[in-house]
Amino acid sequence: MKSNKGAFRDYLQLEKKYSVHTVNAYLNDISFFEVFNQIHFNQEGIEGVNYSQIRSWIVSLVDEGVSNVSVNRKMASLKSFYKFLLKTKQIEVSPMLKHRALKTPKIVQIPFSEKELTDLMLEVEAPVGFEEIRDKLIVELFYTTGMRRAELINLMMFNVDLSLGTVKVLGKRNKERIVPVLPIVAEQIKLYLRERLVIEGIVNDDYFFISKKGLKLSESFVYRLINSYFSRVSEKVKKSPHVLRHTFATHLLNNGADLNSVKELLGHSSLASTQVYTHNSLAELKKVYAGAHPRSK
Rank of each mutant, 00 (worst) to 15 (best):
A283I: 14
E123S: 15
K172E: 10
S19Y: 01
V160Y: 05
I54L: 04
A186W: 00
S261D: 04
Y143E: 09
R148V: 05
M96E: 02
A283E: 15
H293G: 01
Q43A: 06
E132P: 00
N280F: 12
Y192Q: 11
L265I: 03
F208P: 09
L253W: 12
Q275Y: 13
F8Y: 15
V243C: 01
G291H: 14
L266M: 03
E264Y: 01
S273P: 08
I107G: 05
K106N: 13
K172L: 07
S163Q: 05
M121T: 05
E64L: 09
P180Q: 09
V23I: 12
V233D: 08
Q275H: 10
V93N: 15
A76E: 01
L141P: 07
H99T: 11
S281V: 04
S3P: 09
D10G: 08
F84V: 01
R224E: 15
S113M: 06
E123G: 15
L14T: 12
R134F: 00
R100C: 14
L152D: 01
E64M: 11
S240W: 13
K190Y: 04
S52C: 00
N28M: 08
S67L: 02
A272T: 15
L271E: 08
W57P: 01
I107S: 07
D119N: 04
F208H: 10
H246N: 08
H293T: 00
P180I: 11
L120R: 04
A25G: 13
I153C: 05
Y207L: 12
K175P: 02
R134N: 06
A290N: 11
D10A: 10
K16M: 04
Y11H: 13
L193G: 00
V179P: 10
G214K: 03
E92G: 15
N154P: 05
S67R: 02
L97T: 14
S113R: 06
P127K: 03
E195F: 00
V160I: 14
D119T: 04
R55F: 07
V108G: 11
E200G: 00
Q109T: 15
N159Q: 03
E200M: 02
F32T: 10
E284Y: 13
G171Q: 00
V222E: 02
M96W: 02
F36P: 07
L197F: 01
E176K: 08
L244D: 09
